[in-house]
Design a protein around this nucleic acid. Sequence first.
DNA 1: AAGTGGTCTAGACCACTGT
DNA 2: CAGTGGTCTAGACCACTTA
Lengths: 251, 251
Amino acid sequence: MGTTQLDTVPEPKYWHLKTVLSDALDSEFAVGEILPNERELAARFGVARATLRQALEQLELEGRLQRRRGVGTTVAPPRVGVAVGDYTHTWTEAGDDTWSCVDSVEAVPPAAVVRLLDTDPDAPVHQVRRTRVSQGQPLAAELLYVPAASVPGLAAIDTPSGLARARAVLRELGRLKLEGREQSVELGSARADDAKELDRLPGAPVLVVTTRYVAENRTAAVAVATYRADTCRLTFGDANGDANGVELLAG
Amino acid sequence: MGTTQLDTVPEPKYWHLKTVLSDALDSEFAVGEILPNERELAARFGVARATLRQALEQLELEGRLQRRRGVGTTVAPPRVGVAVGDYTHTWTEAGDDTWSCVDSVEAVPPAAVVRLLDTDPDAPVHQVRRTRVSQGQPLAAELLYVPAASVPGLAAIDTPSGLARARAVLRELGRLKLEGREQSVELGSARADDAKELDRLPGAPVLVVTTRYVAENRTAAVAVATYRADTCRLTFGDANGDANGVELLAG
DNA sequence: AAGTGGTCTAGACCACTGT
DNA sequence: CAGTGGTCTAGACCACTTA
């Protein structure tokens, strides 16, 4: 298997520390259990606190730990599998694991989104903010960009803004017959507003899912959803008949 | 748009620094250009080097920068879109953007993979190592787990190990008629062996794509591919007719 | 050999959470 | 309030690349 070469390169301390801690998590700790605080752990391992933190950071990145300021470091449960590749809950708003609207405004989208929408760079579009929650835990925050052309039935002065308006946009969007969809996933860091929805600090690692919805041979809408990278595993089922959206890839 | 509230919470220095640097990258630097070194940048902004590094780290995570020890920090090109959701190049080995075999051994897979394979926990399986390269840049390292039952035509003593054996396993695997596939994406950190293939340091952030191949109502194989999170954007096309695997979501 | 980013230290203070 | 994790400093040394 792996290179059994005698490490000519000495392993960094934090890397070794991470391995030791990881093993300890498997054998000596239960999910939800709280670890000794950072100062004590650092002392116990004979390293500076910064070095210990480097190890903890990696373990949190891998979804093994959860750190909360003022509280402590706890052992994280296994990541939740979140379906992002099926059509079942696209615009609907019902059940435990679906999107729920927050609000809506009309504004000019960022340049990156304009490229996908192929609208006028200065043309305002409907922006609908949604969040996805499962089992009480916030999973994702989304910003949906809907050109006015995609919701012709929506009177501009229908409702000024807010939740009612968001629902109105989605209702109109539901009339469209989707012909296809393109998605991409990349690593990002949470913007301040998203971080707030996700109950994380700004800059927290997130998986950014960009979806381009195609209808009538045009881009009907673009969604940019940021999922908590520490707690989520995104699933793209191809031949699975899972009823609800949240399901594990493993048994 | 953004909360225009007067920040009751003072912004961390590294966060503000990141914003400033990000803007500078957009306006004053070209792709591939080399930045001033960390010590000088830190002095220029009047912060400790560790603080500056925290900002650089985030920008690297977002794919804006590329740091190489002994060389310097350069402005990264936009992320490459990598198709992971189509069937075209599954076992084949040809062209610029495909998998190329490295070697193969027979060994007992880790527990997490055993759960997906539903084989005996102690039963060895064929493991094929592959790498995915595009435009000279390594994109991903993969470990394919193939139970002996999926490749009945392969004599156990066909070839001892190495590249020839890897090709033999894939050839036999090609005889199977795939019925479906399940994929998941999650954030991870590169193991030492993967990091070497990806030309990164151990612990570098990666997107781990786990694929379960289904044939004849059984799990034919499981692939665990780790993509460089800094340089890759994974695309899951649903209605796109892109010929080659590497294509942008945007135009 | 010089210059780069990567690791590590031993402190300090701040922001947040609970009681 | 005491205790937690988050930020920040000013140094030091190491590993690596390039010339």
